[in-house]
Design a binder for these strands. Structure first.
Lengths: 184, 184
DNA sequence: TGTACATCAGTGAACGCGCGTTCACTGATGTAC
DNA sequence: TGTACATCAGTGAACGCGCGTTCACTGATGTAC
């Protein structure tokens, strides 16, 4: 049957949100379209009313989550305190244990390379994030700020990934702490 | 029919090697048992003569590849020149473009967290790598060396992952270069 | 040394299952007159 | 304003396919006598 257009837009958002979370929790391949639709409170059929394919949904999810990250980076840029707070939150056990709501680079970074439709949009978002993070590190030159932001970003992403992979809580926390302290 | 035991051991190694490469190239879920066996020159049936399950193979692959990494780290520890060479090789476009033969942390790091059978063995291997890398960074204290090795490791892994995810070659090389220069 | 037999890795068809995707159908909503 | 009809998101069965895993069978090898 027909549904009011307002609901359609709302459902699209809901699918995107649920998929975004599930993909970050378990990876693209280990989450099925049916599962996403079920989490969104729908049957699997109408998925194709909202997205052209699973791959198209993946791309939209990445952009959606990267834009949220960019927003966070922008907000954190306002003061030294908020930047340090951001880094502490990023490299926290809370963030480590909630991959579904967390950084998409740490959750799906390793899988983006294999999804052609996702790499382009991801790259554009990453550029914005690096540009914005550069202002976190005032240096003698713009280039130096940019370099420091790349170094900070790579170590934050790497630390979160390794702290999640490891099953020894002591080592896991050590990785987060040392990178945190190296950056603040 | 029956085969000489020497061939059995050799085939086991071959499966392990091919699986290791395919998993690093495409991830655990996107490589099938049949594909691995075909790459090893066998039909899919006898897989279960060699391994208890796909998950067991995954665990063995991780350990196999992590031990190879450990060997590399140990060998690089002999001199300042060899350490810098190692870092240059790790953060090179050649390594970026050959994930199948490269660092298992960068290739599969994000997926290990989801494979219970793999996390334990991975953690033990990572501990050895961190211990060994600590000698790369002579500092006032053992703790300080260890901290620097954790910081170096996380940024190397993070940089390789992001440089692979990005589809703009200029940005990809910039990420590798800046982290490389930050470490040498 | 020669013969009879147990062993067991490899073969390839088959298992049940869930995947991504399609489609004929439903029926409340929006539109035309 | 009331009626007739087109629209189209949602339903759920069905598509072909490949997955991980199992198993009855094969037959060269190793072993016992």
């Amino acid at each position: 049957m027909r549904y009011p257009p307002s609901e359609t837009a709302e459902k699209h958002e809901r699918i995107l949100k649920e998929a975004s979370q599930l993909f970050r929790e378990r990876g693209f391949s280990d989450v099925s379209v049916s599962e996403i639709m079920q989490a969104s409170g729908l049957t699997h059929g109408p998925f194709y009313n909202h997205f052209a394919s699973k791959e198209a949904l993946m791309a939209e999810c990445i952009v959606h989550a990267m834009k949220a990250s960019l927003k966070g980076v922008k907000a954190a840029g306002r003061s030294t305190e908020s930047r340090e707070k951001y880094i502490h939150r990023y490299l926290s056990t809370a963030h480590r244990d909630t991959a579904g709501e967390g950084c998409v680079m740490a959750a799906l970074g390793g899988q983006i390379r294999q999804e052609p439709a996702v790499r382009g949009p991801f790259t554009e978002c990453l550029k914005s994030i690096i540009d914005n993070m550069s202002s976190w590190f005032p240096s003698r030159s713009k280039q130096a700020s940019r370099n420091r932001s790349i170094q900070a970003l790579t170590s934050m992403v790497g630390a979160l990934i390794l702290s999640r992979a490891v099953d020894d809580p002591v080592l896991s926390e050590e990785i987060l702490r040392e990178v945190r302290e190296g950056l603040t």
